Structure formats: C-alpha cells, structure tokens
Computed example of a mutant assay.
Amino acid sequence: MADGVFGLTKDLERETAGVWAKVKDHVTPLEWPEQARLISEINRLKRERDAVILAHNYMTPEIFHGVGDYVGDSLGLAKEAARSDAKVIVQAGVHFMAETSKILSPEKTVLIP
C-alpha cells in the first residue's frame, strides 16, 4: 500500500531516502517512484546473486548513486572488481571496461548491460 511521499510505501521510501537525497536535482518527482522501485529490486538481486555493480562516472544519477557499489573511472573500477569477493561483476559502462574487468578477474562472471 502506497502511503509515503511520491506514492511509495513507507519501507521503500525509507530504503531509498539516501538515494533520493543525492538524485533529487536530476530525477523528477514524477519519475522517482519507478526509479525507487527499480533501485530496490536491483539491490535485492545483487545480494541474492552475489553481484556488484561497477558504475562509471558518466552513468545516470540513479545508477551511479542508487545501485553502483563501486564508482569511478574505468581502470579504477576494474581494480575494484578484482578486489571484490563477489562472484558476478556487472559493468555499467562500455565494452572495453568489461573486458578489462574480466582480464583482472578471470574467475568471475562479468556482465555488461
């Protein structure tokens, strides 16, 4: 039942409040309810599948702030992938970034959406 701000449930509102504070100047209140739901679901799937998301500096704010576990430039992200204990690396960037992550983490599954 939607009973919070923007029509979100109180739990979802509480869960995504920190993200909203970071993206409110870039995501409209009209878009936020759907973004909040997607952020929540993506973060749940990351936990369930032992995955992390590497978010390059030029990703959209909801990806960069909402689901990115590691944020930064391409080489820095690949190094973070290698240090991470996660089995699955999701590279939010361009193809060569995922290739670099795979080179540095050959035992991990590297995905690029």
Score class of each variant (00 low, 15 high):
residue 15 E to C: 03
residue 52 V to A: 01
residue 46 K to R: 01
residue 79 K to F: 01
residue 84 S to K: 07
residue 31 E to V: 10
residue 9 T to P: 05
residue 85 D to P: 09
residue 21 A to L: 11
residue 29 P to G: 06
residue 39 I to D: 13
residue 47 R to D: 11
residue 96 F to G: 02
residue 99 E to Y: 02
residue 96 F to T: 05
residue 84 S to I: 13
residue 64 F to A: 06
residue 81 A to S: 12
residue 5 V to S: 09
residue 76 G to P: 01
residue 93 G to W: 04
residue 24 K to T: 01
residue 95 H to P: 05
residue 22 K to Q: 11
residue 35 Q to K: 07
residue 52 V to I: 11
residue 93 G to Q: 04
residue 52 V to H: 00
residue 31 E to P: 09
residue 80 E to W: 10
residue 75 L to A: 10
residue 46 K to V: 03
residue 24 K to L: 09
residue 44 R to P: 00
residue 25 D to Y: 07
residue 98 A to C: 06
residue 16 T to V: 02
residue 72 G to W: 00
residue 63 I to E: 03
residue 38 L to P: 01
residue 99 E to H: 05
residue 58 Y to K: 05
residue 1 M to T: 14
residue 57 N to H: 11
residue 38 L to N: 15
residue 33 P to M: 12
residue 68 G to C: 07
residue 55 A to T: 09
residue 50 D to R: 00
residue 79 K to H: 07
residue 70 Y to Q: 08
residue 110 V to D: 07
residue 46 K to A: 06
residue 13 E to F: 01
residue 4 G to I: 12
residue 87 K to T: 06
residue 34 E to G: 04
residue 59 M to W: 08
residue 81 A to H: 05
residue 4 G to R: 13
residue 37 R to L: 14
residue 34 E to C: 06
residue 36 A to E: 10
residue 58 Y to S: 08
residue 30 L to Y: 12
residue 112 I to H: 06
residue 75 L to Y: 04
residue 19 V to F: 00
residue 96 F to L: 05
residue 23 V to T: 03
residue 37 R to N: 10
residue 2 A to I: 15
residue 54 L to H: 03
residue 2 A to H: 13
residue 71 V to R: 13
residue 41 E to G: 09
residue 72 G to S: 04
residue 50 D to C: 02
residue 38 L to Y: 11
residue 72 G to P: 11
residue 41 E to L: 15
residue 58 Y to T: 13
residue 95 H to R: 14
residue 15 E to S: 09
residue 4 G to K: 11
residue 44 R to A: 01
residue 28 T to K: 00
residue 87 K to Q: 12
residue 1 M to A: 12
residue 85 D to G: 06
residue 46 K to N: 00
residue 55 A to G: 13
residue 55 A to N: 10
residue 88 V to T: 15
residue 17 A to N: 05
residue 28 T to S: 07
residue 80 E to P: 04
residue 92 A to T: 07
residue 82 A to W: 14
residue 85 D to W: 07
residue 32 W to L: 10
residue 108 K to D: 00
residue 43 N to R: 02
